[in-house]
């Protein structure tokens, strides 16, 4: 699961949908038998794509996710980038590319801060299926 994806998923439990705590899911508590693993996966760099995707990102949630995964380098406010090819933007776009698209959570778990349900990631695939008693 790419780090960017964490910015677009929330707790699957319907009753959590109305709670502000259902998003983002948290990586701050991990299970000892399935420790958190991040891998770097090369992805073709497209400054235009990062520039276009930036307005769609919920920045506060991204800061939380990145911090919980060990990255504290992001600016506190969402950067505004108009020209993806301007030299002064090159490093930031490259950093965002690495963080959002090349950082793969290959194993670990995500926790809902509202209901406490834990979603596992194995072989880079998150599993959002709920046990029967949580399905409404």
């Amino acid at each position: 699961m790419k780090l960017l994806t964490a910015n677009f998923v929330q707790c699957t439990v319907k009753a959590c949908g109305s709670s502000p705590d259902c998003f983002p899911l948290h990586f701050d508590q991990q299970m000892p038998d399935i420790p958190l693993e991040l891998v770097h996966e090369d992805v073709d760099f497209s400054p235009e794509f990062i520039c276009n995707i930036l307005p769609r990102i919920e920045w506060a949630a991204l800061l939380t996710t990145a911090r919980e995964l060990g990255n504290t380098q992001l600016p506190e406010a969402k950067p505004e980038i108009e020209n993806p090819h301007a030299p002064e933007n090159a490093q930031l776009l490259r950093d965002l590319h690495t963080l959002l698209l090349e950082t793969q959570i290959s194993q670990g778990s995500m926790r809902c801060a509202n209901c406490g349900h834990i979603y596992f990631i194995r072989d880079s695939i998150p599993n959002f299926l709920l046990p029967g008693h949580l399905v409404q």
Binding site: L4, T12, I125, P126, F128
Partner: peptide, 16 residues
Amino acid sequence: RFVDVGIADGIETPFR
């Protein structure tokens, strides 16, 4: 690679 996949139900979806 600008894609990602996960296992999820079609009614109980995890999408924001």
